[in-house]
């Protein structure tokens, strides 16, 4: 095991994960709101926000999927060491890490069932940057509307059409993250 896979975890797990979770939760509660999170440093090319999310939410009970860009020995070792999450095929996983362009077809991931729509994947998708301009988001958590530079609106529209089934997407860029749950309705600018 490479030495650096031991580094980059939470220094004070209880407090670091509590603070990180509050950021992630407020992001999910307010789709399109960009939230900074910190406390963990995963190996490249994983963004630190994705790493913090993994440290906060993943453990041996949550199968994790890695898209090709993230499926690297250093990232596998880091995730395994710090979270203990089993790494499986992305189509079966509870959390999937990758670049947005690798994940643009949301339907290949777990969508939940009509009786248990919560049994669906959370996609952690890396994008180049996050800013509040561009596509218009509406729905629960949003007072009237909020703008976000979505790389593509089509998969989000298709996802929302499946409601209450579908995936929930967390987009990350560096230490920032933003959530677009399935309940968010997306329109082009």
């Amino acid at each position: 095991m490479a030495e650096n896979s031991l580094a980059g975890g939470f220094a004070a797990p209880a407090v670091n994960s509590a603070v990180a979770f509050r950021g992630i939760m407020m992001a999910m509660a307010e789709p399109g709101r960009i939230m900074p999170v910190s406390g963990g440093i995963p190996p490249r090319p994983m963004d630190s926000a994705a790493g913090v999310l993994a440290l906060t939410l993943c453990d041996p009970t949550t199968p994790v999927g890695l898209m090709p860009s993230m499926d690297q020995p250093a990232i596998r070792e880091w995730l395994t060491f710090h979270t203990g999450a089993p790494i499986i095929a992305p189509g079966e996983a509870e959390f999937v890490f990758g670049r947005f362009d690798e994940m643009a077809d949301f339907t290949v991931f777990r969508q939940g069932t009509s009786e248990y729509p919560d049994r669906s994947a959370t996609l952690v998708a890396a994008v180049a940057s996050l800013e509040n301009s561009g596509a218009v988001l509406r729905g629960p958590g949003i007072k009237e509307s909020r703008a976000l530079n979505l790389p593509d609106v089509t998969p989000f529209q298709a996802n929302a059409a499946l409601y209450p089934l579908g995936v929930d997407v967390v987009m990350v860029a560096g230490g920032d993250l933003v959530a677009i749950p399935r309940s968010t309705r997306v329109e082009v600018e």
Partner: peptide, 9 residues
């Protein structure tokens, strides 16, 4: 994790 799914649905 349950809270996040709850907020999403």
């Amino acid at each position: 994790r349950a809270l996040l799914k709850g907020l999403a649905i």
